[in-house]
Nucleic acid binder design. Sequence first.
DNA 1: CATCGAACCAACC
DNA 2: GGTTGGTTCGATG
Length: 119
Amino acid sequence: MTILVYEEGNVRKANVKDLLEIVKALLLLIPIGKVTSYKEIALMLGVSPRLVGRLMAMNDEAPIVPCHRVVRSNGHIGGYSLEGGVEIKRRLLILEGVKFRNREYVSSEVMVSLKKFYK
DNA sequence: CATCGAACCAACC
DNA sequence: GGTTGGTTCGATG
């Protein structure tokens, strides 16, 4: 369960459980009607975007912890492993006021950087 | 814009 | 050990 994390020029150990808690906290910072990307979170944590996706899937408190507000870096809606799949994800986002460019992509203006809230 | 291949990395079998 | 994802990037047309 322990993995390596690249942080501020150093490599340190962390376990997936801890990362999951951090990710949850980050997700709660995303304003309603906005989204962020797997990449953004991956860069902040120093892990691979794929792992971020896995962490989302491990989130047992969805949609209270809004893992549906995370999309691909190019705006594509991405995936959703919970009951209902991407359909539910899209519905939740629309419900929150997220604008879509088309069925698969959110509008670029709803992407928000989490770094603003960091530090 | 769309598709493709490769790198990604812990979980799962 | 091989496969599988809630991905990304660069190359190509």
